[in-house]
Computed example of a mutant assay.
Amino acid sequence: EPYDIVRGFPKISRTLMLYPSLLKHFSSCKSVVVEEKMNGYNVRVAEVRKHPVALTRGGLACPYTTEKVAGMLPMEFFEDYPLLVLCGEIVGPDNPYVPKDIYGIESLDFFVFDIREKLTGKPLPVMRRRTLMEEYGIKSVRMFGEYPITEAGGSITRIIKELGAAGREGVVIKDPEMAVPPIKYTSSQSNCADLRHAFRFYNDYGRDFFFSRVVREGYMSVEWDESEDDRLRRCQQLGESLLLPLIETIKKKKRGEKITEDSRIRVRSLETVSKFAEHLRHMGIDAIFDAPQPAGDEYLVRIRKINQSTNDKTDAVLSGQMW
């Protein structure tokens, strides 16, 4: 049977020192476009055998996301452009991977941040992509503007501070023609939110996940030339992000409770629930699915993912095992 090839989405490099990175990375560009980096999970949507299929970053076809995007995206786009892939962010509270309730979205939504050729992976220029999405009524991530390269640093710093104050993640900085790869820059609040989440499951996350986010805080503090008071506030925010969730996890385990990562999905078909449960098993994720609850013409299903390593380690230490 014929098969389709969909190129993977390239990893976006992260800048820790914004001003020198802009000048060095975009040395061939007169200006850069700044778009919001939304906090959800990356999905590539491509036409496969006349149907849209949602691929997560690992290259796996997610049955839940595929059902959701089928109701969000017009099939006309894929009929007209079968060799283009929509790259976007799935955000909202009914998100089984990264549930966030900061965008005022009731369930889930899809925001395009890139369009690439299916076979080559070549991206469309920024404004061509945004215009195309507007023509088909498909949502794009927020664009803050296009800035001369010599002035972009100040504008991006202001944007990052505003996004951070709103609890949002950060920005992606792009060559308007997409000839130079994009780079990303995230807020301190986003770093700390990641750490708060991860330290609830401290033995299931790799140490590099923790370390890299702490290092980001140091570079940002230096680049922003913070006062002593600002540095102390940053230290307090960082310390609380590490210790408070860890302490709560230990207390929870001491009470005999399981450490679980809770999320939910909203589906039209109960068959999708079964397929998604199998999808998680295939990914090696141990999860408990609660009974589906009717929600209008859909079903709401709560999921508890068991973080076994953190459960086992915390149990062992509480019972006297050495570290």
Rank of each mutant, 00 (worst) to 15 (best):
M17T: 13
G58P: 00
E47R: 09
D204A: 07
S140T: 14
D194L: 00
M322Y: 12
S263N: 01
P20E: 11
I173A: 03
R44I: 01
G218S: 09
R7S: 09
R255Y: 05
R44S: 12
E106R: 13
T186S: 02
G284I: 08
H279S: 11
I5P: 00
F201V: 02
H51W: 10
H282R: 13
K139T: 02
T150L: 14
S13K: 14
K118W: 08
E226F: 13
P74H: 10
F211P: 00
F289P: 01
N311E: 15
E169V: 01
E226D: 13
C87S: 11
V126L: 07
V85P: 00
R129L: 11
E76L: 12
G58M: 05
S13D: 14
P294A: 10
I259P: 01
A70W: 06
Y81G: 06
Y97L: 14
G58N: 12
E76C: 02
R200K: 12
E117A: 11
R207E: 13
S21E: 09
D208P: 01
P125R: 04
E248F: 03
L280S: 02
F211K: 14
H25F: 06
R7L: 12
M17F: 10
L108W: 00
L23S: 07
A198F: 04
T120G: 03
P148R: 12
K258R: 13
I115A: 05
S190G: 01
P82G: 09
M143H: 00
R7Y: 02
Y205Q: 13
F276P: 00
I102H: 03
E146I: 07
G239C: 10
L270T: 09
I102D: 05
F201A: 04
Y19R: 15
M133K: 03
R7W: 05
G170R: 00
H197D: 10
P125E: 08
L243Q: 11
F113C: 06
R116A: 04
T272M: 02
L55I: 15
R255I: 03
G170A: 04
A179T: 14
G88W: 06
G239T: 07
S155I: 13
V69W: 01
S227N: 09
D290Q: 14
G239D: 08
P2W: 12
P20A: 10
M127C: 04
L23C: 03
T66I: 11
W323R: 13
M143V: 08
G256I: 02
F111L: 12
D208H: 07
S309Q: 11
G256F: 02
A165W: 04
A61N: 08
